[in-house]
Structure formats: C-alpha cells, structure tokens
Design a binder for these strands. Structure first.
Length: 364
DNA sequence: AAATCCAGCGTTTAACTTAG
DNA sequence: CTAAGTTAAACGCTGGATTT
C-alpha cells in the first residue's frame, strides 16, 4: 500500500506558497523558478514533485531551457491534478508523461532529454539540510519503483511535527537507516549497471557506503545533541507530571477537609437545635454527668488511700523482719564471741602451758 | 563541456506546550 | 477545554564544486 507524500499536492497550482522564498523575490541568477544556470553559459530546467525530481538536459540556449521548463511544468501540473483527484501517484506520472508527449510531440520530448532522480533526506542520521540524491534515471518505471521503495521506508517513520525520538527507539531508527542505505546503494550502483558497464563494480558500492558512513559520522554530534535534548524534555515532562499529580492530591485533600468541616458544622448545628429544644434534659444530663464524675473521683480517692495504707503496712512489716534478723544475727555473734573467749581462757589456764606457747600465742 | 553532486537556507507544516 | 505560541522536521530550490 503506497502513501503519497503530502506536498505532492500541497504545492499545487502555483499558489505562491513558495513564491517569495528568497528575499526580494529574485530566484537564483536567472530570476526564473526552475531554471538553473551554470557558470553563466549553460541552462537547464529542474522541478520537483515531492521527492521526485524532473530534469531536462543542459544547453547553451536560455530560450530552449525555458521551453523545457514549460514542458516539465505542464507534466507536473497534470500529475498533481491526478493526485489531487485521488489517483495513484505512479499512474498519474505515467499518464502525464504520455499526455504531454502527445501534446508537444515525440521530437520535443527527445530534445528535452528528461531524466528523473530522487531527493532523499534522513534528518536523524545525516544533517537536516543534507540530502542524498540518486543518479539521474532515464527510465520512468525504474525511477517510480525506487521512489515507491523509498516512500515505504519513509512512511514507516512518519511522525510529522514531534521529535522522531518520541515515536521510535534508536534501534528502530538504526534498522530503518540500514534498510535505507542498502536501498540507496542499490539505487546508485544498480542504476550504473543499466547506464554504463563500469559503474557497478563492488568498488563503487563500497564508495557509496563510505560516503553515507562519512555523512553519518559528520552528524554524530548533532545526533548526540538531539538525544540529550530529548532526554531533557522527557525529564521536564516527568517533573511536570509529578507536579500535576501532587497538585491533584493536594486538591483532593483540601476537598476532603472542607467536606469534613461542613459535616462537623452540620452536626453541631443539629446538636444545637436539639439542645435548644430540651433545656431541662440538658440540665439533668449535666447533673447526672457531675454526679458520675463525683462518684468516680471518690472511688479513685478511696482506692488511692487504700493503696497507701497497704504500702505503709507492707513497709512496717518488712522493717520488723529486718530488725528481727538483725537481733538474731547479734545473738549469734554474741554466742560465738562468748564461746571463743571461754576457749581462750581454757587454753591459757591449762596445766601444760609453756613460755613458748605464751610467746607464740602473743605472736599470733 | 556536460553531468552530477551536494551544501545551504528560507518556508511550511503539524504536533506539542502552555496560559487563560 | 481552547487558542496562541513553540518547535522539529520536511520541503523546494539554488548554484558552486566535482566528476566524467
């Protein structure tokens, strides 16, 4: 399923959407849109429809180039109208070519030397303003086939407006880039095969691959920058979301609190109303409450009193026990010292007591 | 000399952001 | 929610440089 590039119809009708592209309204050195001048001595016509470029051959004569431009313009207008009517781009191009040829004649078409090429850009991999071009292709069918394939690849990355990184991972982009490079190399070298015998050598494939690699390398800083900027944006967004969540939570809390306050007020109003209705009951309640509190207090006091009494009794008891113990200990000590004294006295008053015993006893 | 490449830049587009 | 502002990317074209 092929999708058209939007601008193939958007730039239609010469509405002047690009009319004042350059300041002062002067376009190039020729001052004519679509006429390219080479070193003041060679003129050619060149117009795009989407990524599809149509080029005439170059010649010395400006008037001829203008004739060529008129034919190419006619062709493109026809194709655009077809696309506007909702027809397939390729059918429109084929039909436009046939119609234009039948209008201006085969000879004029041959003189025109019409060739087709594709203007391709891959902003993430190579600089946003850098384009890669396919060689000019004489055969419309070949050109259309390549255009279809490139369009499919580009369509897979359709993201318009927001950052490429918002929608695709770096791996996705790399995969798309690899398929793109393979196709581009094929377009450059495969076309060489049909045009000249020399161009399709593996060396030229290598050269194209090398050129692409160099472009990718040259844009590596820019890619890094983009990645950083994207990360930054993501973080900011995350913060914003968090702030928003906090705000909602705060609001909910506030709402709850307000509801509670409302409820309290309502209850208190109801309470008041009740009180207004039954003053006597209120007094009775109050009295009952007071009595309840009084009895509670009395009971508590009594309990405290009893506790203290019990404590005192316990203290007295323990004191008594301690005294008794002390007395008993004193009695034991007394008995012991008495016995000791008696023993000593007996030892000192025995019949076989010697002087040495007395001295040794003293030394003891 | 002709053909082709390709760097550069103003304009347009539409998604995204944000203040009210 | 909406309108206005912002942004990144694509488009269209030119013209000097390079290759054939």
């Amino acid at each position: 399923m092929q999708e058209e590039f939007p601008t193939e119809v958007a730039a239609e009708g010469g509405s002047g959407s690009h009319g004042s592209r350059r300041s002062g309204g002067i376009i190039g050195r020729t001052g004519v849109r679509g006429i390219v001048n080479k070193k003041d001595n060679s003129y050619g016509a060149c117009l795009n429809i989407g990524i599809f470029a149509l080029t005439s051959k170059f010649g010395r004569d400006l008037a001829t180039a203008l004739d060529h431009l008129a034919i190419i313009t006619m062709l493109i207008q026809r194709a655009r109208h077809g696309v506007l009517d909702g027809d397939d781009f390729e059918d429109c191009m084929r039909r436009a070519l046939v119609e234009t040829e039948s209008e201006v004649g085969v000879e004029a078409m041959e003189d025109l030397g019409l060739k087709f090429s594709l203007t391709l850009s891959k902003s993430y991999w190579i600089n946003c303003h850098t384009k890669v071009y396919t060689p000019r292709i004489a055969c419309l069918e070949t050109a259309l086939a390549y255009r279809r394939q490139f369009a499919e690849l580009q369509q897979a990355l359709y993201h318009r407006g927001s950052s490429l990184l918002n929608k695709f991972s770096v791996a996705d982009l790399a995969d798309n880039w690899h398929r793109f490079s393979a196709l581009y190399i094929e377009a450059c070298c495969g076309l060489g095969e049909t045009q000249s015998i020399v161009a399709s050598s593996p060396k030229s494939r290598e050269a194209v691959a090398k050129r692409l690699a160099a472009l990718v390398e040259a844009n590596s800083a820019e890619r890094e920058k983009q990645l950083r900027a994207w990360n930054c944006r993501q973080m900011l967004q995350e913060e914003r979301l968090q702030r928003q969540a906090a705000r909602t939570e705060r609001r909910a809390l506030l709402r709850d609190r307000r509801a509670m306050v409302r409820e309290d007020r309502k209850l208190s109003r109801e309470d008041k109303a009740l009180r207004r209705k039954l003053p006597s009951e209120l007094v009775q309640n109050l009295v009952r409450r007071w009595e309840r509190l009084q009895s509670l207090r009395r009971r508590r006091e009594a309990a405290v009193l009893q506790q203290e009494r019990a404590k005192r009794r316990a203290a007295a008891l323990s004191n008594c026990k301690k005294l008794a113990k002390q007395r008993a200990a004193a009695k034991v000590e007394l008995r012991r010292s008495r016995t000791e004294r008696e023993e000593r006295w007996r030892w000192l008053n025995r019949r076989d007591l010697t002087m040495a015993d007395l001295l040794g006893q003293r030394a003891l």
